[in-house]
Design a protein around this nucleic acid. Structure first.
Lengths: 219, 219
DNA sequence: CCTTTATGTAGACATTGTCTAGTTCCAGGA
DNA sequence: TCCTGGAACTAGACAATGTCTACATAAAGG
């Protein structure tokens, strides 16, 4: 049970056929079990059933593999956010909260993987697919903020950029800090209730308490 | 210029005399230059002018050294927060903002060192001095939140714990997310203005906008 | 004074990421 | 169909790291 399935080729064939995908799958398992620090390029290759030099042909180096892996993470988060928003009320603020809950749920369900998404020392945001996917996730937040600000009285076109930026910054900082602290600070985690479900409802409650902050004062 | 100063002993003496402190100093320089990922126990020993096995006698292993180092980080942040609060208006909300600004300033001025403070995979919060110092920093925030909530109409004793916890969670999540994202997310950094000074004022502005959130609604 | 114990050294070991040289095999032009 | 170029993979080398063990030195205290 050591050799993994080789979809396109026979079991013992020299060429794998779909090594790139296999390595990304192996990476997911490995990072889920061992965490980010226990992650190893060689162990990843071992799980995919190839030699330790093979990954270089597809990803260049370790940073390349992690960057490609993280691009997938952002894509998944993007899709999750879309689903959460569709399931939520169309009302602007509900959409903003739904985006935040998606962000939080993803982080809590994929600890090490989420942490890697913001480790600029191990991934390369210059990698186009990664940059693109990360931007899409960011756009969800921004769109929601714009909708909340627009919903009141104004037209979208005369929305001051500064206002949108400020609210996006606020919303993003809050979810990100909440998720991050929950994941690697025991003090925070216990303070928030311990279980992911409690954390989730604590987050939602605080977001509802901040509603006026997002909808209010124009400048 | 390889051997570092050995305060208590002669230059070429076998025993260092103050290796523990020397290693922590070396660690500070190393982590400041190379970042957290470039940090190495052996290089740290090299800078202190001792063999690679020497640190084990004082810290056990790498995790032990980083834990002791991070305890100092929290102590420094604690002291910085005290100074910022003393320099600020005594009014409760100004105190809360001052605590946040201290947190943010420390993070921006000590990037890698700050990041290490929340890397539970590399430090051990069970190390008593670390746990104690971290708790002291947390208490600053909590004290400020209590003061803000008390200042209104109530006595401190009938402050619902849940309200204090919720506001502390909110304030902490926000600063922490803000600082963290600024440090390792280019999108966020540029959105907030690029320079630390702009980031600082953006943070303060948002905190002032959230004032009602902290002082308002009892439950 | 002498022995115990803390402090440092030196070398071994397994493991890691990357490089290089050599294999295997697929694909596309003659 | 053959054959040839290049992509995919293997195997071994290399320097570097964290930790372990055996040993050397010195300081402290009976």
């Amino acid at each position: 049970m050591d050799r993994r399935s080789r979809t396109k080729s026979a079991e013992g064939s020299y060429h794998h056929g779909a090594l790139r995908e296999a390595l990304l799958v192996a990476a997911e398992g490995l990072i889920g079990e061992q965490g980010l620090e226990g992650f190893t390029l060689r162990e990843c290759a071992r799980r995919a059933g190839v030699s330790h030099g093979a990954p270089a042909h597809h990803f260049g180096d370790l940073r390349g593999l992690l960057s490609a892996f993280t691009a997938q993470s952002f894509e998944t988060l993007d899709a999750l956010t879309t689903r959460y928003r569709e399931a939520a009320e169309p009302e602007p603020y509900a959409q903003l909260v739904a985006s935040g809950v998606a962000y939080l749920d993803y982080a809590l369900a994929n600890r090490a993987r989420f942490q890697l998404m913001f480790r600029s020392d191990r991934i390369d945001f210059g990698y186009p697919p990664l940059h693109a996917a990360a931007t899409r996730v960011h756009d969800h937040l921004r769109q929601c903020v714009v909708a909340v600000l627009t919903g009141e009285a104004r037209q979208p076109e005369d929305l001051p950029d500064a206002a949108v930026l400020a609210r996006t910054t606020q919303a993003w900082s809050f979810v990100h800090g909440f998720a991050t602290l929950y994941l690697d600070n025991g003090l925070f985690a216990s303070q928030v209730g311990g279980t992911p479900a409690r954390a989730r409802s604590a987050y939602v409650a605080l977001m509802l308490g901040m509603r006026d902050t997002f909808e209010g004062d124009p400048d």
